[in-house]
C-alpha cells in the first residue's frame, strides 16, 4: 500500500500539537483530578469510602433504578427506531437524505424545552388529560412516575438511535438481500440472516448513544419525575451543587465511569462475536 504523505515533511506533525496540549489539559488532567478526589477523604488521605458509598441504601437504589430505566428506554428506542430506519432506508435508496433529516430536526429545539413540553402534556391538568376528560375517558397519571422518565428518555434520545441504524442500513447493498431471496430464503430468513447481522454495527452504536445519556441523566428525572425519583445522576449532581461533598460525588462519578466502560466492553464483544460468526 502506498504510504500517504510521504512527500510531506515530518514537521507537519506539529500541527497536531495545539490539540494534543489541549486534550491533555482539558481531558486527561480533569479526569485525574476526579480520581484524586474520588479516592481521598476531606483531609486528602487515601480512602475507598467514596467509591464504596455506592453500596449505601439510597445510592444503590438510585443506581439500580437508573440501570432499569436506561435498559428499558434503550430497548424501546431500538424497538421504535429499527423499523423506522428500515423504512427510511428503503424509501431513500439513492435519494437525498432530506426525508431522514425530518427525524433529526427535533434535536434543534432545545432539549430541556422538549422535556418540559412533555411535562405540559402529561400534567394532571395537562393537554392529554384535558382531551381525555373532554371525551369522558379515564385520565392518566404518569407524570412523576418512572414511566414518565422512560417516555422522556425515549423521546429525547430516539434520534440518536435512528441515525446510526439508518446510516448502516442505507449503505447496505440491496444485492445481498436479493441474492438471499433468489436462493430461496423467505422474507424473515433474509432479514435475520442477512440484513440484521449486517446492520449490527449501527444498532450497537445506537445502543451506546442512548444507553449512556439515559443512565447518567439528571435533567429528565428532575423535570418528569418531579424530584421524587432519584437517579444516580441526580445523586451526583446534588452532591456537587447542594451538599458540596466533592469527594463523595467524585467517588460516585468513578463508579459511573466503570459502568460505562463495562457497557462498552459488552457491546464491543457482541460486535466482534457477530463479525466472526459471519
Amino acid at each position: 500500500m502506498r504510504k500517504p504523505w510521504k512527500s510531506l515533511s515530518k514537521k507537519t506533525r506539529a500541527l497536531a500539537a495545539p490539540y494534543f496540549v489541549w486534550s491533555v489539559g482539558f481531558i486527561i488532567i480533569p479526569l485525574i483530578i476526579i480520581f484524586f478526589y474520588g479516592f481521598a477523604d476531606a483531609n486528602g488521605h487515601f480512602t475507598l469510602s467514596n467509591v464504596a458509598s455506592i453500596f449505601s441504601h439510597v445510592n444503590l437504589k438510585a443506581l439500580i433504578i437508573s440501570m432499569l430505566l436506561s435498559f428499558l428506554s434503550t430497548f424501546v428506542c431500538l424497538l421504535i427506531a429499527y423499523p423506522l430506519a428500515y423504512i427510511l432506508a428503503e424509501f431513500g435508496h439513492g435519494k437525498s437524505s432530506l426525508f431522514a433529516f425530518i427525524f433529526i430536526l427535533p434535536m434543534w429545539m432545545n432539549s430541556l424545552l422538549r422535556t418540559i413540553a412533555w411535562q405540559n402534556l402529561l400534567e394532571k391538568t395537562g393537554l392529554i388529560n384535558t382531551i381525555l376528560s373532554f371525551f369522558h375517558l379515564p385520565t392518566m397519571m404518569i407524570i412523576n412516575t418512572p414511566w414518565a422518565i422512560v417516555l422522556g428518555m425515549v423521546y429525547d434520545f430516539l434520534p440518536f438511535m435512528i441515525l446510526p441504524i439508518y446510516n448502516t442500513l442505507s449503505r447496505l447493498e440491496i444485492d445481498y438481500a436479493n441474492a438471499a431471496r433468489d436462493l430461496g430464503a423467505n422474507g424473515w430468513q433474509t432479514f435475520w440472516k442477512i440484513t440484521w447481522p449486517l446492520s449490527l454495527p449501527g444498532v450497537i452504536s445506537g445502543i451506546t448513544m442512548v444507553f449512556v445519556p439515559s443512565l447518567t441523566t439528571f435533567v429528565i428525572s428532575d423535570i418528569l419525575g418531579g424530584g421524587k425519583i432519584l437517579l444516580i445522576g441526580n445523586i451526583i449532581e446534588q452532591l456537587f451543587t447542594q451538599d458540596n461533598d466533592w469527594n463523595a460525588g467524585a467517588g460516585l462519578s468513578i463508579v459511573l465511569m466503570i459502568f460505562i466502560v463495562i457497557s462498552m466492553i459488552i457491546t464491543d464483544k457482541y460486535d466482534k462475536e457477530d463479525a466472526t460468526k459471519k
Binding site: S9, R13, A16, L31, T216, F218, I236, E237, S253, M257
Partner: peptide, 30 residues
C-alpha cells in the same frame, strides 16, 4: 490535528484518537 496526525506513527495516532474518544463516550455529567 487531523492533518498533523497523518504523518504520525500509528501508535501516537491511536493514542490521540483514544483521548479524543473519551469525551464522546463518557457521560456529560462526568
Amino acid at each position: 490535528a487531523c492533518i498533523g496526525m497523518q504523518v504520525m506513527k500509528k501508535r501516537m495516532r491511536s493514542v490521540i484518537m483514544g483521548i479524543t474518544n473519551i469525551p464522546m463516550l463518557n457521560a456529560d455529567i462526568v
